[in-house]
């Protein structure tokens, strides 16, 4: 029993190590790409700067706010969503699975004693570790610059908030992973998922809070007692970007925070189960031809 467990652990460790080495091949290009990814933030800063200044002039106040966000909070929010997206985004995951289903590569997971979802998860963890070890530099540069610029003035992070932030980031990573894997599994039923994936990407960009803080959504009731804000609040997509950033800025705190984390955990379990169920159903449907 002990040997079995050991050999199993060894097997997963080997998979992780190989994946890690694979990812570190193009690190220079990678670091530059990460730094460049912060460029759109610059235009965002100027846009919001102007908007907040206008609101200040309109309301004749020194400290204009939008739903509790000052200008500096807004910039901090965008930076923090970039951090949470660095955890929850899964480039190439769903399309990779769909491709493997289409070209029959998925067969190897049926024959070999390696579980597909576990393999992909380890691969993704390796990808992320490689990503952070390289992206740490660019992130540090930008965050330090913004710290000096005073954009993080309202972030204090007592250790409980810090723990909650970390937990939401890790769960965000897992939700992102299982959600995208499940989308990839749709490939068992449809040959081409790329356009579906594009629609998902668009939706998640808007509804995860990557584009703007979700609290800015209109609060007037549209269906029954539901408003856009409450509907989006019920969707799981907000855990991919908005939620961790909101924790860090203490927009969500106290009981709301605890409840939010529990709901996030619930969504995580939901997507894990869905992913497994879809894989099992997909395999029953799948037929591989040729050699």
């Amino acid at each position: 029993m002990e040997r079995l467990l050991y050999s199993r652990a060894l097997r997963w460790w080997t998979i992780l190590r190989i994946a890690l080495e694979e990812r570190m091949v193009y690190r220079g290009d990678f670091a530059l790409g990460t730094l460049m990814r912060f460029l759109p933030i610059i235009t965002q800063i100027f846009l919001w700067w102007t908007i907040f200044e206008t609101i200040g002039a309109e309301q004749e106040t020194e400290h204009p706010e939008i739903e509790g966000f000052s200008f500096h909070d807004m910039v901090a929010y965008y930076l923090l969503t970039m951090l949470s997206r660095a955890f929850s985004s899964m480039p190439g995951l769903a399309s990779g699975i769909a491709l493997q289903i289409r070209n029959g590569e998925i067969k190897k997971f049926i024959i070999q004693p390696v579980d597909l979802v576990g393999f992909l998860l380890l691969n993704r963890i390796a990808h992320k570790i490689a990503y952070y070890s390289v992206a740490f530099g660019p992130f540090l540069i930008v965050f330090t610059l913004c710290w000096w610029g005073g954009y993080f003035d309202s972030v204090s992070l007592p250790w409980t908030t810090w723990m909650a932030f970390l937990a939401s980031l890790i769960m965000g990573f897992l939700i992102g992973f299982f959600l995208e894997t499940a989308i990839g599994m749709i490939g068992f039923w449809f040959l081409e998922v790329s356009s579906l994936l594009f629609v998902y990407m668009l939706l998640s960009f808007f509804l995860s809070g990557h584009m703007f803080p979700l609290t800015m959504l209109p609060d007037n009731e549209i269906i029954g007692r539901l408003s856009y804000r409450t509907i989006v609040d019920m969707l799981p997509l907000k855990y991919l970007a908005y939620f961790p950033a909101a924790i860090c800025l203490e927009t969500v705190k106290g009981d709301d925070l605890i409840r939010g984390l529990w709901i996030e955990a619930g969504w995580l379990v939901f997507f894990m189960v869905m992913c497994r169920a879809m894989y099992a159903a997909g395999l029953r449907r799948y037929s591989g031809y040729g050699g």
């Binding site: 102007t50 908007i51 206008t54 002039a57 808007f206 703007f212 800015m216």
Partner: peptide
């Protein structure tokens, strides 16, 4: 449409972009 929605929201908070 998303872009449009975003600015629709922005303009619910401000009258113009730039005083």
């Amino acid at each position: 449409a998303m872009n449009y929605g975003f600015f629709e929201i922005v303009f619910s908070y401000t009258g113009s972009i730039g005083a």
